[in-house]
């Protein structure tokens, strides 16, 4: 397939969309850190900590929730062999 044709495939568009969302999330998460460089509240350690802490806690809770979900579904499907694991191959 020519490069031009490949760029028009749905799978690549989906991949790029997923990567775009992930980058946006990454930038949103890193924003308190970026804010710290300029220290917009002018309060030194205090202001940067107060800005960054909720974001960091939110990110950590999100990671733990995702891990819990994986553990739950693994436990639910524990008796399924590899080839019978429910899946929806979409790409």
């Amino acid at each position: 397939m020519r490069i031009g044709g490949w760029f028009r495939t749905r799978s690549l568009r989906r991949a790029l969309a997923a990567a775009g969302i992930a980058v946006l999330l990454a930038v949103a998460t890193a924003s308190p850190a970026l804010a710290h460089i300029g220290d917009p509240l002018g309060g030194g350690v205090q202001s940067s900590t107060l800005i960054a802490l909720p974001f960091a806690l939110l990110a950590v809770v999100g990671v733990l929730a995702a891990a819990a979900y994986f553990m739950y579904t693994a436990h639910r499907d524990r008796d399924l062999p590899i080839d019978e694991t429910p899946t929806e191959p979409t790409v």
Partner: peptide, 10 residues
């Protein structure tokens, strides 16, 4: 992408 992840073995 999430569906693909859900399809992995336990």
């Amino acid at each position: 992408y999430i569906n693909r992840l859900r399809g992995f073995s336990p």
